[in-house]
Design a protein around this nucleic acid. Structure first.
Lengths: 181, 181
DNA sequence: TACCAGGTAGACAAATTGGTCTACTAATAT
DNA sequence: ATATTAGTAGACCAATTTGTCTACCTGGTA
């Protein structure tokens, strides 16, 4: 049923995110989920289809989470504060719906698949665009520069937090930087 | 000799950067470089040692390139302009010494190796610290916020350029954002 | 000459990969 | 009652992985 399919996706997503896609074999996903191989290949054409499903799942988790975090903001300054505070919480692995922080799943995945025309690379780009759209819709300011500043700093914060390991400092810096606007 | 060793590292770096480390096998590096397997294992303990050597080579290439790009700047505004113009050129694959742009090699590599205590992850962090130090030394301003703003935007620009594919727009936005300081 | 370091070419081993297939079970719908 | 569907368990396959090993070649040096 759909339960098996969902369990497969959740297991794959968790393993892919924490270990990287090429480091996780089909057999490990099966063993962890306790599902038989034939069931997997009944639901998915192959590993790539499973990767795509995991990306989709992550995208939904992330958008849902982000929207909830910034929905109640009543000014642009508050949008910025809520956004980067939420990111800081994510960086410190305090957001259960996003799992232990290990960078951006889409950036990490895009890094593993060199073919820029593949469905996977394509989906990673769409994710970023949709996040940008979500932020744009919450802002009252129509300044494209503000929107770009927020999004570029957001990307920078994610990779900086991942590579340096210090999560909360980066986000408060971003808020200060943006307070000039 | 050292020539073989150098050729091995250069070949490995080129392949690792364009395809990702887990997607490149030892045999492909050997075939591309035309070097025998036993020679490789005479120079390196194993694949991981080769990865580390490639990271080191990339680090040197990158630092040398960056230093040359911003060395002649005579004001902080000029440092910023030169830095982001250079990045924009890199994003458009116009910097031969850095190869066809495919994001930051260190971020990509860190994404593939989940163990945060491994030599590889460690080296990726050191690289970012050294780049930051280089920029810091070129700035006359002692404001830590300016330095952080530059570095976070730089990281954001790299991943944004990689995932969206549009390289030059991002960097001019960064320069505009920083012109507020 | 004889030796030896450093190289080539590639067979080979052991493990792992993604994926197919057979045999069996359990529940449900006709 | 029977046929179908969805599942389990796991053997099996072909390809690929990293790494070792044997056999041979070559150029410089004692």
């Amino acid at each position: 049923m759909n339960e098996k399919r969902a369990l497969l996706i959740d297991t794959a997503l968790a393993l892919f995110y924490t270990k990287g896609i090429n480091s996780v074999g089909i057999n490990e996903i099966l063993k962890t989920s306790g599902i038989a191989k034939k069931t997997l290949y009944g639901h998915f054409e192959g590993k790539e289809a499973l990767v795509l499903a995991a990306l989709k799942q992550r995208h939904e988790n992330f958008i849902t989470w982000l929207e909830a975090e910034i929905s109640e903001a009543e000014s642009d300054q508050e949008v910025i504060k809520r956004l980067f505070d939420a990111l800081g919480s994510w960086f410190n692995s305090k957001e259960p719906s996003l799992g232990d922080f290990r960078g951006c799943f889409f950036i990490n995945t895009a890094a593993e698949f060199s073919d820029k025309d593949s469905d996977i690379s394509h989906y990673c780009r769409e994710h970023k665009e949709e996040v940008k759209r979500l932020i744009k819709n919450k802002l009252t300011s129509q300044s494209p520069l503000l929107l770009d500043a927020i999004c570029i700093l957001k990307e920078g914060a994610i990779t900086t937090a991942y590579v340096t390991g210090k999560g909360s400092e980066v986000t408060s810096k971003c808020i200060k930087i943006l307070s000039a606007y």
